[in-house]
Design a protein around this nucleic acid. Structure first.
Lengths: 188, 188
DNA sequence: GTCTATATTTCGATAGAC
DNA sequence: GTCTATCGAAATATAGAC
């Protein structure tokens, strides 16, 4: 039951937004009552947290690989390859990505959540550390940030303009674009 | 007063999100009561709409210039130059952009708003028409979408990592990156 | 584990005095 | 233009029976 609740919540939170989705609505879609949900989750926020941790787990793999390198420039060099893998992960979990992009404020609420603070090595923090790394040239860090925005923008963006393009073809095109973006002219 | 309401609303909607910001909160920050707001705006949604139309006005200039060109390939060629101008506009109105990125569901609500439907030539629609244009190669359209995501991602993204970089320098770096991104290898 | 029933709070919106 | 006072709806969350 717990998984079914999470699946329905993911769907509704992504479609309508976290705040506009009531527990009553989730329960109705599952054919149970609101009170039944409270047996499995103490607060509404806990449902969102559990879904957030799924993305957390997804991204951890990529960023752990980067942080295993001890030099900033090494990390910057490895970035294109790691991003390729990250693109695949995100395209394979479009719905999870959509949940986060469409509910940034719900994400902020988790900052005050004890369980979330315990799970410290957050994707956002890891990404922040990387993009703030002082031993990577600014121009390159900006382009790394651009590459993330570009990938996310295409996957979720423009309101499904590329929905008739296969995931594989889209991934390949985005990979090529990211590669050109990440090559900084005049840098060794 | 009307402008003061809009300014406070822009601030709170961006910080906390549209749904989580009550009219009572806006009124309190202005030193008036909730009821006073209803003299200036009939519904809460109308406040958000008015703010949305500010961005609408901003983007219209750029997209009108593109749509004045009658050929798809001409539009694609003009895109880098138009994007440059668009980057300046967005950086100069960071708060307005943040409002929209952080409240996608509030934006969706406007679709059912009559006044919004009347204001038809919407940015999203114009952007959609451009990115769906059949006489621009798919690879190029994907890169155009990437460029938008890259720009927005850097301006609002990564939680203020580049906040110590001046707007002018950041804009220049993003412009360069976008230019490299938009050049499609093997295309005339 | 799920139910009914209810407590409690907060929100958007309105009525009418000033 | 702004106030006080209030309505009605809907939300989260809880209590206790089954």
């Amino acid at each position: 039951m717990r998984e079914r609740i999470l699946d329905v919540a993911l769907e509704l939170f992504s479609e309508q937004g976290y705040e506009k989705t009531s527990l009553r609505e989730i329960a109705q879609k599952l054919g149970v009552t609101k009170a039944a949900l409270y047996f499995h989750f103490e607060h509404k926020e806990d449902i969102f947290l559990e879904l957030h941790l799924r993305l957390h787990a997804l991204g951890r793999e990529a960023f752990d690989e980067l942080e295993s390198l001890h030099d900033g420039q090494q990390r910057a060099d490895a970035w294109p390859h790691v991003l390729d893998h990250f693109i695949d992960q995100l395209i394979g979990n479009r719905d999870l990505l959509l949940l986060h992009v469409r509910n940034p404020n719900a994400l902020d609420q988790l900052a005050h959540n004890e369980r979330h603070q315990a799970e410290n090595e957050d994707i956002q923090q890891q990404m922040g550390r990387l993009l703030a790394s002082p031993d990577i040239p600014l121009a390159q860090r900006v382009r790394m940030a651009c590459s993330i925005g570009a990938v996310i923008g295409v996957i979720i963006g423009a309101g499904g303009v590329f929905s008739d393009v296969s995931s594989a073809e889209l991934a390949a095109l985005v990979r090529d674009a990211a590669r050109d973006l990440l090559f900084v002219p005049g840098q060794p």
